[in-house]
Design a binder for these strands. Sequence first.
DNA 1: AAACAGTGCGCG
DNA 2: AAAGCGCGCACTGTTT
Length: 463
Amino acid sequence: MVIPYKRSAYKLLHDGAIALAEIEGNGIKIDTVYLKKTIRKTEKRIQRLQTELEKGKVARTWKKVFGNKTNFNSNDQLGKILFEHMEIPCPERTKTGKYRTNEKTLMTVDHPFVEKYLQIKKLQKALTTYLRGIQKEVVDGFLHPFFNLHITRTYRSSSDSPNFQNIPVRDKELGNLIRKAFIAREGHQLVEIDYSGIEVAIAAAYHKDPRMIDYIGNPKLDLHRDMAIECYKLKSGQVTKDIRFYGKNCFVFPQFYGSMYTDCARALWGAIDTAKLCTKDEMPLKRHLQSQGIRELGDCNPQESPHKGSFEYHIQQVEKAFWGKRFKVYAQWKKKWYQKYVSRGWMLTKTGFICQGFMKRNEVINYPVQGSAFHCLLWSLTRLVRELKKHKMKTLIVGQIHDSILADVPAKELDDFLMLANTVMTTQLTNEWKWINVPLEVEAEVCPIGGSWSEKEEKEIPK
DNA sequence: AAACAGTGCGCG
DNA sequence: AAAGCGCGCACTGTTT
């Protein structure tokens, strides 16, 4: 349970709810012709792949085994076929003992059937959850997703009917397919403004670790790069953009969320092959690690201590230094914060909410940060809606995704809007909430006039 | 027919 | 002591 504790906390949600209702009312314009066409095309594509799949040997076995109960959508059936009838060793079980058949597990099964199966599954997701999911909620060419403030345990928002906060973007093909349906109004363009690293910045308000505050405030410092160097035992000149990416997403963020070195080691090691990582001087990373005396990953079993010389052992050492030396103050804060929760059963967030009830250690550490980070966006969003009206601007806010705002902007207002959003989200917010102890930054992505959300490109914010 | 748990997968 | 946090939606298979 999270409850408003201070009057200001109540007001934040009250004003936020009104602003979000207005955003829901505005709605996002949908290219209904494209949507209809794409649904038809995708259905055909799935059908073609399905027919091909059913011609294969595996599918024939499947039909023989399950007869008229055959259902190619059934994970239970898939597991039985692969791991019983085809006698492929099952790499992982679910917590209830079923065969695990998610993408990650199936990727380890090297079989043409599995490849095609996953392709179909991906398209199916695009069709049912997104293309059709959007279509059924469109009214007069506009989509009006709900944004809730009363659902989540952390006091983030959520969105439904349809969920506007999980539209594909990481997978380029899927992202383009779906986001082409989201368009700007006549003579307008879609603009997205994101906070950069808001959770990391807001965490600093809780732990106040001086080295972290340095990293956030000093543009010459780069934590993700530094950690990539340590994890892969590199010299600073050897780091590529890719390597930095995996340092960030396989070590730094998982560590902040409470992951263990075992998971980090596995992910960092796996990335070397899947992303074919090489140093800047074009040395394959596995070979580089070999030259540093590391030849194997290790068992990555949390119950056993790792062997010296394994990659797992090395990452354990990196983790130790990360919390024991580099971010000592942050580590102490985590310990103290958790102990305090255990002894009194509740905690107070920076934005004035009480979190109470049973929580695990990682939840106690993460909830207040996640909630307050979103509240930065909520406050800014509310202020922005008000400012747009005050200046009689035609820009409409049409959506929100935890740390970003989507607006539908008349071409003429683009620069004004970018500057206004920037001021509200950085300067005005930090003036209002003095507990924010690091500078905040935003980034803008802009779509072409009359274009779709799939065409967003980074743009410098004018001063 | 409706509700539930379980699984998988999309996002921050 | 626990083992990465938060959501919504589609679907299967079972229970009410």
